[in-house]
Amino acid sequence: MLHLGYTSNPRALLEQHAAAVRAGWHDLSAARVAYPPLLTGPLAVLPAGWRPAAQSIVGALAAGTLLSVYLARLVVAQLPITLIVLLCAALLCNTSLWYLGTQDLSGITSLLFLTLALGGFLRFAAFAETEGGFQAGLFLAVAFGCGSIALAYALSLVIGAPLLAVRRFRAEPAAILATALVLGFPIAAAALGWTFTVWRLAGHPFAWLSNSGNGTPFHVRSGSSVALRDAAASVLHAPLYLLVAACILTGAIGTGHRLFVRAMITLGFFVPIIVLFLGDWLGFIYSPMTSFLLLTLLPAATIPARPSRPLCLLLGTAAVLQPIIAIVWPVAGAATVDNWIRAIF
């Protein structure tokens, strides 16, 4: 029998903040707990009894949308049906997506907007298509309204862009700063704007960081070795990610580039790992389930259209391995998920 009503820490925190905003809106003191505003704001408007259901519904919608965007990307790349099924299974046959979708609204919505941003990012970085830049920049800013992990996403894209399109940027070095601004300005403005607003209204500019339950900012929480271990573990749990990186480096993906170019692109591909490591080390943000999903979504955005048969075989094999590894060697944070599963069943 299913036992409904399990409430994770992120869910509870969001509901607490929504209640505090509703209670304190008249004197603006609630601004210090109003982060993330795109989630807390609407929840605060709802009666208390409706909030759990609202979180569940929105979380489910976000997870479903994320999955459909992922699937659409695979279909547009004209991958064989079997490979599409295996890649979807790699995403679905892991409790991370289910847990985030039901228990961490901030995590799933920020990830969704990152996924939407990625589509524009690739067109922008590789083809200098400004509409793609608009899309990437704006979705990253919206993602910030859902969770501070968006800052890490944005940093990854800003650093990664000149590496991923190294040939274009070598020819036009002035484009590097311009690209960084287009990608990063909206989220930077959102973060600074929110910091300023909270400072003026509630007197605590960075309260939104600590009150979001992400730990004390700029405080080395876990130590570099621990953060490094966690980052490495995240990568090893994502054989798809490793495979795609190897294919880029060897030229199996993106043929015709010199070794230097391939190395730069591979480095760009690994930037999210570096950023997640730094984030964890600084105590800024860390969610093992989020990083696992991130490392599953990123390869899908990079797989070329109509890949060769050998590449399809390799990708399929990695897609099968991924859930197997997760079962044999649980993702960090599995204890939280286990509690959730036990509570439900």
Binding site: A128, T130, G133, F134, G137, E172, A174, A175, L177, A178, L181, V182, F185, P186, A189
Partner: peptide
């Protein structure tokens, strides 16, 4: 500010973006 950046970027006037 953002639409100003985009307009300059589209014209490939990168030095104007900042």
């Amino acid at each position: 500010i953002y639409v100003g950046m985009m307009g300059a970027f589209r014209r490939r006037r990168y030095r104007l973006v900042p």
